[in-house]
Design a protein around this nucleic acid. Structure first.
Lengths: 193, 193
DNA sequence: CGAAAATTTGACATGACTCAACTGGAGTGG
DNA sequence: CCACTCCAGTTGAGTCATGTCAAATTTTCG
């Protein structure tokens, strides 16, 4: 039950809850254990849950027309992962969700979360704020993706997500940064000299 | 008062309102008229309002270390524009907001919007959904910015924002797409042949 | 009409990709 | 515990995409 604390610790600084609300929130979420490389969502599935990472490391990615993987996002403890568009519109997912490390994910059914929003207004607030922050961060990433060189992006990634870099293989970092593994390798060589 | 309808027409499909709520919402917003090139927010200002475009066309942009403009976003009728991070955290803005065409913007003070969220719960819902959609769209743009060629991005932009393309100068489109005006020019030449 | 701004064009430089070969380390089966 | 295989990572050559700079041309607007 320890992982449930992880969840509350992430919600409460943003949206404090009464004891009853806390119970309601916890009751709505269910834990799911994942092995390394286990899939949490496939392209084509309809995402039925909001998902909070209590432990471990996951990634979301899609396959392009050539079957190549492109990573959108990594997530570690305290992050939310999803194919949000699929979840929101209940259409088939574009993205895959997969555990990069063994993981524990807390999931809440869409219908239950909607009910929770009604019963526990701070949760609606919490998600609005989370979305706002995610949006801002994403905006930042968009600009940087288009305007910075791969080297600059890598240096930033390193500083910002030191921990993630140490937990995922290098070719996944390359994929996240939008460069080929070869190119990332040359960048690293250049930096370490 | 016509522009106030524009606002309600954008809120109600997502979050229906009672007559009283409608009044409360309208009362909170104040119109502001902008001339072409007039600034709505400067870098360094603290963004005090949420802003809805009732008429006209605006852009948000920032200046890099070389003083070059980079456009994040255009907005036309029915869009929201802001430096969201500044608004949310009440820190100095990174971005400028400027009218590209004469415009009418409906503004609501942050404190009033917060009060509105409490009094009119559908508004909190409306903004959560807006944020989610914006986030998803932004995620899309991030991926495409890093992985598609400038030509592909331009073709997409054209299809998706035909109207905006016709309302803003080409060098701003280039800026939005993250390419030099010269390069966009050669892309256009290539496409039209 | 004239000046300023926007766009086009071309030569050259650099960043990033592709492809192919090689290196080194982590499992795995004998 | 060794030998083998497989996969991640590195290296280098050649190529394409895009940037920089400079100049010419067109458009806009006072």
């Amino acid at each position: 039950m320890d992982y449930k604390n992880t969840l509350l610790q992430h919600i409460e600084p943003i949206a404090p809850l009464s004891e009853a609300e806390r119970m309601a929130v916890l009751a709505a979420f269910q834990p799911k254990k994942l092995k390394k490389k286990e899939m949490l969502l496939f392209k084509g599935d309809i995402s039925q849950h909001m998902r909070f990472i209590a432990k471990g490391c996951l990634r979301s990615y899609y396959l392009d027309d050539n079957g190549q993987e492109h990573i959108l996002q990594f997530g570690i403890e305290g992050w939310w992962v999803n194919d949000l568009y699929s979840y929101l519109t209940q259409t088939p997912a574009e993205y895959f969700l997969q555990a990069v490390e063994p993981a524990i994910v807390l999931q809440v059914q869409r219908s239950q979360l909607e009910a929770l929003f009604k019963r526990v207004p701070p949760m609606e607030r919490f998600f609005r704020i989370k979305m706002q922050n995610a949006y801002v961060a994403q905006q930042e990433r968009t600009i940087k993706g288009m305007r910075m060189t791969a080297e600059q992006r890598y240096i930033e990634f390193r500083e910002k997500y030191r921990e993630i870099e140490q937990r995922v293989p290098q070719y996944m970092v390359a994929s996240y940064l939008g460069v080929t593994p070869e190119h990332l390798s040359t960048i690293r060589k250049k930096i370490n000299s």
